[in-house]
Computed example of a mutant assay.
Amino acid sequence: MTPTALDTAKPDVSQRSINFTTWSPRTAAIVAGVSLAVMAVLGGFGNFGAFVPLITPGDAVQTAHDISGAPFLLFAGIVSFFIVAILDVVVAGALYTLFRPVSRRISAAAAWTRTVYAVLLVVATSQLVIGFSLLGDPEAALPVLESFNKIWVISLGLFGFSLLLVGYLAFRSGFVPKVFGILLAIAGIGYLADAGGMLFIPDFSALFAQFMFVGEVAIIFWLLIKGRRLPAN
Results as ranks from 00 to 15, higher is better:
171 F>I: 03
163 L>V: 00
157 G>N: 03
228 R>W: 15
206 A>I: 03
190 G>K: 03
194 D>R: 08
197 G>P: 03
155 S>N: 01
203 D>E: 13
193 A>E: 08
226 K>Q: 14
217 V>W: 15
185 A>H: 04
219 I>F: 15
192 L>D: 02
157 G>A: 04
175 F>E: 00
178 K>D: 05
200 F>K: 03
214 V>R: 07
194 D>G: 06
228 R>Q: 15
205 S>R: 10
214 V>Y: 13
174 G>V: 05
189 I>V: 14
177 P>G: 05
155 S>Y: 01
198 M>C: 06
207 L>Y: 11
185 A>M: 14
171 F>V: 04
210 Q>S: 10
155 S>C: 03
199 L>Y: 10
191 Y>S: 03
215 G>T: 11
172 R>M: 05
176 V>M: 03
216 E>N: 13
173 S>V: 05
172 R>C: 02
226 K>Y: 15
162 S>M: 00
212 M>Y: 10
172 R>Y: 04
206 A>D: 09
226 K>T: 15
160 G>A: 01
154 I>Y: 04
194 D>A: 08
208 F>D: 06
157 G>T: 04
172 R>I: 03
157 G>E: 02
172 R>K: 07
173 S>K: 01
192 L>R: 01
222 W>N: 11
168 Y>I: 07
204 F>P: 03
159 F>R: 00
188 G>M: 10
194 D>S: 09
173 S>T: 06
181 G>K: 06
193 A>R: 06
199 L>N: 08
155 S>T: 02
183 L>P: 07
174 G>S: 03
221 F>S: 14
211 F>A: 11
163 L>N: 00
224 L>P: 14
221 F>A: 15
159 F>N: 01
205 S>G: 08
224 L>T: 14
158 L>Y: 00
169 L>D: 05
190 G>F: 09
220 I>E: 09
200 F>H: 08
166 V>R: 05
224 L>W: 14
159 F>Q: 00
154 I>N: 01
217 V>G: 14
161 F>T: 06
170 A>N: 05
174 G>L: 02
176 V>W: 05
223 L>W: 12
172 R>F: 02
176 V>P: 06
199 L>G: 09
178 K>C: 05
159 F>L: 04
178 K>R: 10
170 A>W: 05
200 F>W: 12
228 R>L: 15
224 L>E: 13
224 L>K: 11
225 I>M: 13
160 G>I: 02
166 V>P: 02
168 Y>V: 09
207 L>V: 14
195 A>C: 10
213 F>A: 12
175 F>V: 05
203 D>S: 13
229 R>A: 15
165 L>T: 08
209 A>G: 10
156 L>F: 07
183 L>C: 04
214 V>W: 12
189 I>D: 05
225 I>A: 13
220 I>G: 13
199 L>H: 09
